Simulated assay, not measured.
Amino acid sequence: MKEFVYRVARPALAHFPGHHRSRRGDSGHEFRAHVPLHDAPDVRRLDLHASLRDPLGQWLVRVANERKAVPVYAVADLSASMAFQGERRKLDVLADFTEALAWSAWRTGDAFGFVGCDEAVRRDWLLPLVRSQGAGSAFARRLRAFAPAGRNADGLKEAHRLLRRERSLVFLLSDFHLPLPTLDAVLGSLAHHELVPVLLWDRAEFAQPGDEPNAAGSPGGIGLADRIGRLASLVDAETGQRRLLWLRPALRERWRRQLEARRGTLDALFRRHRLRPLYLLNGFDADAVTAHFHR
Rank of each mutant, 00 (worst) to 15 (best):
residue 82 M to G: 01
residue 92 D to T: 15
residue 95 A to F: 06
residue 254 R to A: 11
residue 164 R to A: 13
residue 98 T to C: 10
residue 244 L to V: 00
residue 270 F to P: 01
residue 85 Q to D: 12
residue 221 G to R: 15
residue 128 P to H: 12
residue 240 G to R: 09
residue 118 D to C: 09
residue 281 L to K: 02
residue 10 R to V: 12
residue 190 L to D: 03
residue 104 S to E: 06
residue 54 D to L: 05
residue 63 V to Y: 03
residue 226 D to S: 11
residue 83 A to G: 13
residue 163 L to C: 05
residue 5 V to W: 07
residue 4 F to S: 01
residue 252 R to G: 13
residue 180 L to M: 14
residue 11 P to N: 13
residue 60 L to M: 12
residue 46 L to Q: 03
residue 139 F to T: 12
residue 250 A to F: 02
residue 248 R to C: 10
residue 40 A to D: 14
residue 175 D to F: 03
residue 235 V to S: 13
residue 53 R to Y: 06
residue 185 A to P: 11
residue 72 V to Q: 04
residue 213 P to S: 07
residue 47 D to P: 00
residue 254 R to E: 14
residue 259 L to M: 07
residue 20 H to N: 01
residue 21 R to F: 12
residue 184 D to C: 08
residue 56 L to I: 06
residue 281 L to E: 06
residue 38 H to D: 15
residue 261 A to R: 13
residue 180 L to I: 13
residue 176 F to N: 00
residue 246 W to V: 08
residue 11 P to A: 06
residue 93 V to N: 04
residue 21 R to C: 04
residue 179 P to C: 12
residue 223 G to P: 10
residue 199 L to S: 09
residue 184 D to L: 09
residue 268 A to S: 12
residue 100 A to I: 09
residue 39 D to I: 00
residue 253 E to K: 14
residue 3 E to T: 15
residue 266 L to R: 09
residue 162 L to V: 09
residue 217 G to R: 12
residue 50 A to G: 07
residue 70 V to W: 02
residue 107 R to S: 06
residue 275 L to T: 11
residue 281 L to V: 14
residue 252 R to L: 15
residue 46 L to T: 02
residue 191 A to M: 00
residue 10 R to Q: 15
residue 112 F to H: 04
residue 155 G to W: 04
residue 193 H to Q: 09
residue 28 G to D: 08
residue 10 R to K: 14
residue 99 E to L: 14
residue 247 L to R: 05
residue 186 V to C: 02
residue 75 V to T: 09
residue 7 R to F: 02
residue 212 E to D: 15
residue 98 T to D: 00
residue 6 Y to R: 01
residue 4 F to Q: 05
residue 14 A to R: 12
residue 203 R to N: 04
residue 90 K to F: 02
residue 108 T to L: 11
residue 251 L to N: 05
residue 167 R to A: 05
residue 39 D to V: 01
residue 145 A to D: 14
residue 289 V to T: 03
residue 140 A to Y: 05
residue 203 R to I: 02
residue 186 V to E: 06
residue 226 D to I: 02
residue 233 S to Y: 05
residue 225 A to Y: 14
residue 124 D to T: 02
residue 154 D to I: 08
residue 169 L to W: 06
residue 135 A to C: 11
residue 175 D to I: 07
residue 233 S to P: 04
residue 109 G to M: 01
residue 287 D to Q: 15
residue 37 L to T: 00
residue 89 R to N: 11
residue 226 D to M: 09
residue 230 R to M: 08
residue 191 A to F: 00
residue 178 L to N: 05
residue 127 L to C: 04
residue 117 C to Q: 08
residue 116 G to S: 05
residue 121 V to W: 03
residue 209 P to C: 08
residue 66 E to A: 00
